[in-house]
């Protein structure tokens, strides 16, 4: 009996921990609406013909995120026509990180000619809801009749400075599998990144 109670408590603790950490593979994502760099509000529901999304939590200032910028652009170029557009969301508070203000986001999107939305999460609610702790972090969503379901969380690949020719391109692999009607064989990865710059209380 004691054992059963203990395992229940443990299970509950694990569940609470998971919910505190945001979305995981299998979670149904609540739709959201955020301001894009073109000043218009945008939400995943606006993409009527999309089959899913590559949601990238990123920012202007993190050196790791910057290292991945061209790869994020390439992901959109390759996968938007196949039904999986990139939606980039800036995680950082503009007071805690002035280089991540809305004006700076617009500047960056212009300079790099972003072909995908780059959204402002002004109160950081969406970053919290997803449970993104660092940039860059990817959530691949697949559109289902239940809503947008998380199919992959983690890193873009395992080769930040593009020095490893045998790198694993996690996100590309996962989207390719989804396009081919399969579940991603690798659905959760980790890589180092910059902590989200939270609004100071």
């Amino acid at each position: 009996m004691k054992k059963v109670v203990m395992s229940c408590v443990l299970l509950l603790a694990i569940c609470m921990k998971l919910s505190a950490q945001g979305y995981t593979v299998g979670s149904v994502v609540q739709d959201f609406s955020l301001k894009n760099v073109d000043n218009k509000m945008l939400s995943p529901a606006d993409f009527k013909s999309a089959k899913g999304f590559i949601v990238v939590f990123t920012c202007n200032t993190c050196p790791v995120a910057k290292d991945y910028e061209n790869r994020i652009i390439a992901l959109n170029t390759e996968y938007a026509p196949k039904g999986y557009p990139v939606i980039a969301i800036n995680t950082n508070d503009a007071v805690a990180s002035p280089g991540d203000s809305f004006a700076k986001m617009q500047e960056r999107a212009n300079e790099k000619n972003f072909s995908f939305p780059y959204l402002l999460d002004a109160d950081q609610q969406i970053t919290k809801r997803f449970g993104a702790s660092h940039t860059p972090t990817v959530f691949i969503l697949a559109k289902t009749n239940k809503g947008n379901v998380v199919e992959y969380t983690g890193a873009i690949d395992n080769d930040q400075d593009e020095s490893n020719p045998s790198r694993s391109t996690f996100v590309k692999n996962a989207v390719n599998e989804l396009i081919n009607g399969k579940k991603p064989s690798v659905s959760k990865t980790k890589a180092v990144g910059c902590t989200v710059k939270w609004k100071k209380a």
Partner: peptide
């Protein structure tokens, strides 16, 4: 260890990858 994921999980399963 070139694979970040390997050392991240090795150090602590709960490490999500942020530094510091």
């Amino acid at each position: 260890e070139p694979d970040q994921q390997k050392f991240i999980d090795h150090v602590d399963k709960n490490w999500r990858g942020s530094v510091p």
